[in-house]
C-alpha cells in the first residue's frame, strides 16, 4: 500500500486561472496528507504542497492538470484535492475587489 500511486486529471475552469488564493488552498489541503503530492501541467511537475511551486504553473482557465499522489493515503488525498479543485474553481476576486463593478 505504501507505494500506491493514484492520479486524476482536473480542468481549471475558474476564469482567473489558478491564482494565489486557490493555490494557497490547494497547498494547505495537500499538506494535510502524508502522501507525496505532485501536480503536472504538460510535463512540468511541481510539488503540490508548495504555493510557490503551484504558482509557477501559471495555470490558466482551461488548463488540464494531473494531480498525482504517492503514499499510504494517496486515495484519500486525491479525493480531497479533486473536490477542492471543484470548489476553488469558483473562487473569484473580481466581484469583491473591483472598485467600479
Amino acid at each position: 500500500m505504501w507505494n500506491r500511486v493514484v492520479s486524476r486529471e482536473v480542468t481549471v475552469v475558474n476564469p482567473q486561472g489558478l491564482h494565489a488564493r486557490p493555490a494557497d488552498a490547494f497547498a494547505r489541503r495537500a499538506s494535510q496528507f502524508e502522501s507525496v503530492i505532485d501536480v503536472v501541467k504538460q510535463g512540468q511537475r511541481v510539488n503540490g504542497k508548495s504555493i510557490l511551486d503551484l504558482l509557477m504553473l501559471a495555470a490558466e482557465e482551461g488548463t488540464v492538470l494531473t494531480i498525482e499522489a504517492r503514499g499510504g493515503d494517496a486515495e484519500d488525498a486525491i479525493e480531497a484535492l479533486v473536490s477542492l479543485m471543484e470548489q476553488v474553481n469558483s473562487y473569484d476576486e473580481s466581484a469583491k475587489s473591483s472598485p467600479n463593478p
Partner: peptide, 20 residues
C-alpha cells in the same frame, strides 16, 4: 486591469519561480 487574468498569472509565475 479587471479583464486580464493571464498577465497576473504570468507575473505570479515569474515572481514565484525566482523566489524559489
Amino acid at each position: 486591469p479587471p479583464d486580464r487574468p493571464t498577465n497576473h498569472l504570468r507575473a505570479l509565475e515569474s515572481i514565484s519561480r525566482q523566489l524559489r
